[in-house]
Write a protein that binds this DNA or RNA. Sequence first.
DNA 1: GCCACAACCGACCGGTCGTGCTATTTTCCT
DNA 2: AGGAAAATAGCACGACCGGTCGGTTGTGGC
Lengths: 197, 197
Amino acid sequence: MLTKGEQTRQEIVERALALAGEVGLEGLSLGVLAAGMSLSKSGLFAHFRSKEALQLEVLQRAIDHFIEDVIAPALRETRGAPRLRRLFDLHLDWIHGNGRRGSCFFMALTHEYDDRPGPVRDLLVQSQRDWYDTVARVVRAAVEEGHLRADLDTDQFAYEFVGIGMVFQQSAKLLENPRAESRARAAFEALLARSRP
Amino acid sequence: MLTKGEQTRQEIVERALALAGEVGLEGLSLGVLAAGMSLSKSGLFAHFRSKEALQLEVLQRAIDHFIEDVIAPALRETRGAPRLRRLFDLHLDWIHGNGRRGSCFFMALTHEYDDRPGPVRDLLVQSQRDWYDTVARVVRAAVEEGHLRADLDTDQFAYEFVGIGMVFQQSAKLLENPRAESRARAAFEALLARSRP
DNA sequence: GCCACAACCGACCGGTCGTGCTATTTTCCT
DNA sequence: AGGAAAATAGCACGACCGGTCGGTTGTGGC
């Protein structure tokens, strides 16, 4: 069974994840976090021996959510082009739908930690590399299924795939461009078109 | 002539711009900034009546630099495809070369302010829309010169152009991928190829 | 029912933050 | 040279930061 403390701990991480979506991982404040729940700052702090430990758990939680909401459902789709399409759709959903306010966690952290070394950055880097690799692997499967060109550079495909997601986010969230999504889909279709046999 | 105070003010903004590249506009600290120069915190503060005023000036300065380093030199290139290529090259230089540490200022701010309303965000949004428009305008000129398809969706081109820059940044700066630049160029060449008559 | 321990509280630490207020120095114009 | 104006320093403020510590409360196993 779930012990009381463990349950509280989970709630803290979940709440911290939501808060970090608005202020970043570095901007997380133990005091604000504790006040948001009904907890004293020290009571909350006791669950993690440092702020960094909390940050790491929050990031890991975000990774878990991403796998659960984006990667896992895509992998249940038919291997090949359909799975690749589904991965792109879920990717867009994640970016745009994720909590309404605050954007894709990982892109925000990219700029928060690209010049801030440490364990948090290390975990972030690993997770992003895994993401590029996952996309490339799905693309490779589509090649093997004959849906895409045999000589396709799958890493290049993944690179451009990720880029479309990024510009979609800025265009949709910051610039509030109503055509952001249709442009992202058009870009993806063009990428697919030139990758076909 | 430049009055003493005005000169100091300029130096403050310039130094603040460098600092903000590492910690963001919100993370700017007047104390740290004043200590970095030889100035008291209050002496520095007196130049701007609020932190937000300083942030706005810093952002405007970044915009000026971007225009000076990227847009203006590109506009001196031959109209059409050459100018477009030059704009892309300068864009990559800006992202990668900009001070080594800290990445493209505007992308970092995108995530810092996409859920933080206020004058700083407003200025940022306007500058980014101007950037998309500038790219689209250069593309349109290339169409008129006959270098690109007459029925090309120039805004779509600009959208994908910006996206390539974004993934280049993450790939190069955060993930330290040595192939980041060649992948960005390959993506741009593919975009050009499918836009030609 | 008792005890050990996990969970939590509240006060507090040294430090930094942005921002006022009042002197004092420096610069500039006549 | 002198006096007005601009520039800067000194200082204090209230708020908040991450983190510590000793003590209190609640829970689970026996």
